Every structure is written in structure tokens, then in C-alpha cells.
Simulated assay, not measured.
Amino acid sequence: MTPEPTHNRSTGADPIVDVEDVSFGYTASPVVEDISLTVERGEYVGMIGPNGSGKSTLLRLILGLHEPDEGQVELLGHPARAFAEREKVGYVAQDVTENTKRMPITVAEVVLMGRFPHAGFGRITSDDRDRARQALRTVGIDHLADRKITQLSGGQRQRAYIARALAGEAELLVLDEPTVGVDAESVDAFFDLLTDLNDDGMTILLVEHDIGAVLEHTSRVICLNRALYFDGDPVAFADSDALDRAYGTNVRRDDGVVLS
């Protein structure tokens, strides 16, 4: 069935993300097709869709890691592929907890990496270290600063990488399935952290498999399955048929809560 999305196009002059008529495929078949959306400063956007729907691919297009086959993507007012100020975007990848298992460095050292783009002549200053410590306090793991990153739980490692983004003065936080492999108690605390960061002004773009969590915590829902099926308010999404159209039979509803 052809999707009938609600487009959320920018009404402001300076969106953080601007995706216009974008299509992309790894082969002749498109993975995402004719996508248009913007993300404004201060928004908390949750992106959902079934497995293989193109969510991670769209993130990579937004981050400038792929060149669209059609259309254009701008990041902070610049073509995403040519965007040079990467420290302004904090990206927490889906497999970050696995990759860090092989890193023999401390949590403090991971977070301090966020200051490297700001270090004059490549030298870390006391101010850089203060900012890193403040970022650790913000995400609630300053007591783990001297611990090896390999010794942290999955949820703690996610917080460490968010702290690195905060230390780097990121303006946009992009997270791809950040709660995979994280225990339920830590997941609740993790979403509370994201809400607090958003309340403090951080723009957040989240890809998440837990549809209920997206509806509960974000201020805007993007529903994708190659094409855009919905883009708007979580309440309006819950009242629409976009979920059924995008997911087909791969979804169930229990007591009014939508689950993937």
C-alpha cells in the first residue's frame, strides 16, 4: 500500500537536519525512497520501523556517511557529506557496546576524546579536563571515571559515549538502537537521562525498536518502512493507522500499548 505520510517540514530558518526528496539504495532497489523531513533545534525525535525498513541507512545519510542517489541532505546548514565540524554531532552507534569491549582505556579517557577537536595545538588543558568531568557528572557516571571502559555494563558504556558527545559540545545527539543489550532497569534510567538532556536543550534523534518507549518519551515520531509513513505527534501517531500500514502483521497491541 502506498504510504500517506504527514510531513514535518521546517517552519524555521535554520533546522539542524534537512532531508529533501532523498532516495538511496545499495543495489538497484531503494532502501529509502523519497524521504523529506527536518529536525529543528531542541526536538526529541524517535524513528521507528520494522527490521530492514531503512532506519539505520537514513541515519547514515543524515550523518553524511552515504551520498543520496537522489535528493539532498543538509546537516547544520551544510551538505551532510561535506560537513566538517563532526564534533557538533554526537553519534552513538548500535554496536558501540561491542566495539568498546576491546578498548583498554578508562572511562575518563573515552570522554576526554570529545575535547580533542577543541584542543589548541593538540594539547589538552585543565579546562578540557573540567568539561570532561562535568559531562561525566551530567550522565551520572563520574564515580566510574577511572574504571576501564571494558568493565562497564552496556548501559554504562552508552552513558560514557553520550558524555563524550557532551564534552565535545555536540548540538545534535544521534542514537541508533541504544538500548539493545541493556537490562530493563538501566533502559528506564537511560530514557530518563535522554529526557533530562532534551529538557536542557539537546536535540536528539533516536532510532529505537521499542515503539512504546518512543511514544512515551519522545515529542515526535517518524515511522519508516523504506518510505515515510508518518511524521508527527506521538498521540496522533497512536490514533492513526500508520503503524499497521508500515508494519503489517509484525506488530501487536497489548492493553493499548504498542509493541514491536
Rank of each mutant, 00 (worst) to 15 (best):
V110A: 09
D128R: 06
Q151P: 05
L224H: 10
A163W: 04
T218F: 11
H78T: 15
R245S: 11
I162N: 09
V207G: 00
M103E: 12
D244C: 00
D254N: 10
G54D: 02
P104I: 12
T2V: 15
R252F: 14
G232Q: 00
P104V: 05
T6S: 14
R131D: 14
L61H: 08
G155K: 10
N51V: 00
E33Y: 12
S219T: 15
P117S: 02
H7C: 07
I16C: 10
R123Y: 08
A170V: 00
L224E: 01
Q151W: 07
F24D: 10
A132V: 13
V22H: 13
A132H: 11
H209P: 03
G71P: 04
G122F: 08
L75D: 00
A135H: 04
V257Q: 00
L173C: 07
A167K: 10
F24N: 12
K55L: 08
R253C: 04
D69R: 09
V214E: 02
A132G: 13
S153D: 01
T203Q: 06
F230P: 01
D200V: 05
I48R: 00
N250M: 13
D200Y: 04
G54K: 02
L75W: 02
F230I: 01
F191P: 12
T203D: 09
E20V: 14
L228D: 07
G52A: 04
P50N: 04
L175H: 03
V235H: 13
P234A: 12
S240M: 06
Q156W: 06
I162G: 05
G212A: 15
G181S: 04
